[in-house]
Amino acid sequence: MNEELYPSIFSQFKGEEGELITILLRVQEAIGYISQEAVKRISQFLKISENQIYGVASFFSRFRFDEPGKISIKVCMGTACHVHGGSLLADAVGWDLGITYGQATPDKRFDFQRANCLGSCTLAPVVQINDKIQGRVLVTELKETMKHREEF
């Protein structure tokens, strides 16, 4: 782990308790999850207990505590996507990767999440693979895409 990382993140902040969520967001952007080390460092920086940090971080759905897979696959579960059959897509991805949402494959190559809304409701149902959003996806299309997953 890069030694410079935490000091460079913390240098943007004053060290007030109110900045906790923003700091957690920046840490997660940098390393992909909230590691035990991160919690320890933040607790030293903000002078609050590790418990308090876990309390806040576990409350918000954005934070995760395990290392994410390299390729992120997000299936949108917004209302519009749901009525257009988004859950079938989620099932299809799950079957393909052999994991359920909220998990990464054991080799940490793929990461499968459900999103509450990706803001592209008019293209429902949508799937986001890394940064690319695919709209109006059919189950068969998604399966076809997943066949080439090693090339993402």
């Binding site: 923003t22 967001l25 806040v56 918000f60 759905s61």
Partner: peptide
């Protein structure tokens, strides 16, 4: 600009304030 970390309940006024103060958004 304060970024929230994804909690529906933070649309509620008092929960939103708690979240801005860096606490659990209750």
């Amino acid at each position: 600009v304060k970024e929230g970390a994804g909690a529906f309940v933070c649309g509620e006024e008092t929960a939103l304030i708690a979240s801005i103060e860096g606490r659990r958004g209750m």
